[in-house]
Computed example of a mutant assay.
Amino acid sequence: MRDGCVYVAGTCDTKGPELRYVRDIIAQEGLRTCIVDLSTRKSGGDVDVAAAEVASHHPDGPQAVFTADRGSSVNGMTVAFQHFMMARDDVAGLIGLGGSGGTTLVTAAMRALPIGTPKLMVSTVASSNVAGYVGPSDVTMMYSVTDIAGLNRISRVILGNAAHAIVGMARNPIPLETSDKPAIGLTMFGVTTSCITQVVGLLDRDFDCLVFHATGTGGQSMEKLATSRLVGGLLDLTTTEVCDLLMGGVFPCTEERFDAVATSRLPYVGSCGALDMVNFGARSSVPPAFRDRNFYEHNASVTLMRTTGEENRRMGLWIGEKLNRCDGPVRFFLPEGGVSALDAPGLPFHDPEADAAMFAALEETVRQTDDRRLIRVPHHINDAAFAEAAASQFRAIF
């Protein structure tokens, strides 16, 4: 069993009986528990950690939590609880119960905890888009079915299942594997799969290769591991999330993309992988402003839009400025033969002029040094020669 305590968190003034029900099931299984009250209006009664104690962990003091405005109070408690949990050294797991406000409050702390720490959120909003709650972390979301507003024949089952789930996770920890092979992160999309498969084949004898799907949170997850020093280098060959950030697609990165490269100074090999496409949902979901653009229906749920030369130039400038902040070893590849499986002669997104605009913008923007270099290659990103060049450069700077 994991040596520590299972924290049970929520607003005990409105969800006290439900939190205690979960606490009692966990305790009956022999695990140590701690109910943390996150109420911002009145005391939650039978708790182990009072709301005032949590609030005292806010960087600006408890007065930043207990305000006259409910919204600012919840925001303040969110910050305080995150700091409270990060100060614990005995976390065997964290389980939370809540509606939209409580889910926002608890999952912020969950995202701050290390990858691998059991985290389970029982929420009334878990059947909707939960990207904002989960982020780049391993938060488990469970839909509450009924509102968390009393114990009844349905809620007892759901909350009981959740309690037993966190017990199972806490009691049976899977340790992070230790190996002589350092872990490295790689980004991949369907249209760069061939590239990454070849790169992994060239490196996996000496490295533990962790591949991240570049769907917005994929890049965030990789960079979270980078800032946590859980990877020793990055092969960020698929930077497509920048397209969706700048052009309004459905798989955007955040404005913080590449910042982990700068702060960690890890060995970094990047490229323009899939920077030729913006992702939308079904064709009917594409904004009217883009009606006359070049589209490719990847499947019934994903429509791809070819980026223009102007958009590519904009991305080149944006990425270039980010790379200028990186003082560790950086190599960024410009594959002149095409940046995705759709960007090749005879294929729907083949547009050498658009790609050239991006490459030119990068070369105008990036301040190249011995450590920070752009590398033009005549190959397509999925060619064997490109994979060999990328792997070779990574070995050279690792």
Score class of each variant (00 low, 15 high):
M305F: 07
S285W: 00
R306E: 08
A262K: 11
M305C: 14
F258N: 06
F280M: 01
T307M: 02
S285R: 04
A289Q: 13
E297G: 08
E297S: 12
V261F: 09
L266G: 04
Y296W: 14
T303W: 01
E297T: 15
S301L: 12
A274H: 04
T263P: 03
V261D: 09
L266M: 13
R291K: 07
T303M: 05
E297M: 11
P287E: 01
M305Q: 12
F295H: 09
N279Y: 00
P267I: 04
N294W: 01
P288M: 08
N299E: 08
H298S: 09
R293E: 13
D276R: 00
A274W: 01
S271P: 07
S264R: 10
A274G: 07
A274E: 04
S264Y: 07
R265I: 13
C272H: 03
P287F: 00
D276C: 02
L275H: 00
L266N: 05
A282E: 12
N294I: 14
E297K: 09
A262D: 09
M305P: 06
T307G: 03
S301H: 11
F295N: 10
R306S: 10
P287A: 04
T308G: 11
T307C: 08
T307F: 00
R257V: 14
S264A: 15
T307V: 11
S285Q: 07
R265K: 15
E256W: 02
S301G: 13
